Amino acid sequence: MLALIAGVYDVWRPRDVAPILTSTLKESTMLMFIIGMSLLFSYVMSYLHIS
């Protein structure tokens, strides 16, 4: 996986790859948080028979 990132972005030093991995982690965390909260919201709506 790291070799693919290094090949696509043409960076081979760890200090060049670190910002890419950091931004990837932030975006993945944000997406998982949105998905998790939407599942919780749908469960609560279903439990309260609001739908």
Results as ranks from 00 to 15, higher is better:
M45P: 00
A3D: 08
G36L: 06
S28L: 14
K26Q: 15
E27N: 07
I5S: 12
I5E: 06
S42Y: 01
K26D: 09
L40C: 11
M37N: 06
G36V: 03
V8K: 03
L2A: 08
M45R: 09
F41G: 01
V11W: 01
S51D: 14
Y9K: 14
E27F: 11
S42I: 07
Y43C: 04
S38F: 02
A6F: 00
V8L: 12
H49I: 07
A3P: 03
D10T: 11
G7F: 02
A3E: 09
K26S: 09
F33M: 14
S38C: 08
V17I: 14
S51I: 10
I34R: 08
L31A: 06
I5W: 10
Y43N: 14
D16Y: 04
M30I: 08
Y9Q: 08
I35D: 13
E27P: 00
A6W: 00
T22Y: 10
I35R: 15
T29K: 12
I20C: 01
M1K: 14
S42W: 05
L21W: 11
P19F: 03
L31M: 14
L31Q: 05
F41Q: 10
Y9F: 13
L40K: 15
I34C: 05
Y9R: 08
V11N: 01
Y43M: 03
L2T: 08
I50A: 05
L21V: 15
V11Q: 00
K26Y: 07
T22M: 09
M37V: 04
L25V: 10
M45I: 11
T24G: 07
D10S: 11
L48T: 03
I34P: 00
Y9E: 07
S28K: 10
D16S: 09
L2R: 08
S46P: 00
E27K: 09
S51K: 05
F41H: 05
T22D: 12
V44M: 03
L48P: 01
A18E: 12
H49C: 05
S23E: 09
H49P: 01
S28W: 15
E27G: 08
Y47F: 11
T29F: 12
M45L: 03
S51E: 15
I20V: 14
E27A: 07
M30L: 13
M1T: 10
Y9H: 08
S38D: 11
L2W: 10
Y9G: 02
